[in-house]
Design a protein around this nucleic acid. Structure first.
Lengths: 189, 189
DNA sequence: AGATTTACCTAGGAAGTCTAGGAAAGCCCC
DNA sequence: GGGGCTTTCCTAGACTTCCTAGGTAAATCT
């Protein structure tokens, strides 16, 4: 009975890889167990249940995403920061589709708290600092940015932009231009 | 052995209701069978498999959404049309969460073709007619609108805007203002 | 080395998807 | 109104997945 060396971390990491290759909705206890050549029951010593496994992938992905966005953002401001943020966000979603899908999960408040959600919010607000908005405009702008990025990435990944000759990247740049000028000339409320 | 009167249409309609009440991911053959007080095997005479059941809900929802958006759009132009479109879109998503989730499904090309996807694209372009854009600007603008609406609605429904005192509706109006002025002063490429 | 803890096992219940083949309800036609 | 046909729903069962309970062997501690 050789041991496979299971730990919560290794299990969740394997589940995240599986999400990227096979889709987040196909992350199952059985599939992860097969990957480790172990019986599915063995996983329950490390992860409470399927929901916790998926939540684990979500928290991991949120953290990775925050790390990458944070790195891309370092030392930039204004328009540069906006573009760096957006590109980091989009490229994470494109290169890690399953992990990105996991970040959409509805997390229970306490799990969300322990996750990097707060860092995401802080970074988004940091970008806006360069545009000199005050509340509640800043909140509206955060929501606009987040919505646009999220929506674009989801539609692009879902193949929604595949029709027509215009590459998605070209539209993406145009979207960023538009957001930049909207933020620059934000009408005070 | 009284007959339940199953048809593909009634089954898919029941599945759509179930999606709204219990969540799209909980739409299962067994659950629909229970609703009709019928054995799950009986459904397979009308619907090929679970995937086809869900696709059916997606197509149904896309059609309903196109109908409602189309009705809201009738006789409007410019900013009015933009707001009517957006509000119809958002209100469908809020009142029919499960159906809206279904519209996000990845459909195989032929199914998507038979669906109302083309009508959605046409309506979005119709709105833009008032802003006098030319290709490829129009395509970029379609993608911007679609992304923003979609992203906003998803985040709002997922509870992403629940923190803070600012109601989502207030941000929504501000987002629409922003989109309107962006479209009005779209920089020609 | 012996005791304890930890990791993984077997066994099995409950629920879901889907196939194959059977019986009965509703319909057509004489 | 009864015979034959089609459609509708059934039972039975194979296979998968989630998860619990309790057992055994490996690693670790003293």
């Amino acid at each position: 009975m050789a041991r496979a060396g299971l730990t919560p971390g290794r299990i969740i990491s394997a589940a995240a890889d599986l999400a990227d290759t096979d889709g987040f909705e196909n992350v199952s206890m059985s599939a992860v167990a097969r990957h480790f050549e172990v019986k599915d029951a063995s996983l329950y010593a490390h992860v409470r249940n399927l929901h916790e496994l998926r939540s684990g992938v979500a928290v991991l992905s949120l953290t990775e995403l925050a790390d990458q966005v944070g790195a891309a953002l370092a030392g930039r401001a204004g328009r540069d920061a906006l573009v760096a943020f957006a590109d980091a966000y989009r490229s994470y979603a494109m290169s890690h589709p399953g992990r990105y899908a996991a970040t959409q999960m509805q997390l229970e408040p306490q799990v969300a708290e322990q996750s990097a959600a707060a860092r995401h919010a802080a970074m988004t607000r940091a970008i806006l600092r360069g545009y000199g908005l005050n509340e509640p405009d800043e909140t509206d702008a955060v929501r606009l940015l987040h919505s646009t990025f999220h929506g674009f990435v989801l539609l692009e990944r879902g193949g929604g932009f595949s029709r027509g000759p215009r590459p998605a990247s070209a539209s993406w740049e145009r979207v960023l231009d538009t957001l930049h000028s909207s933020l620059s000339s934000w009408p005070s409320s």
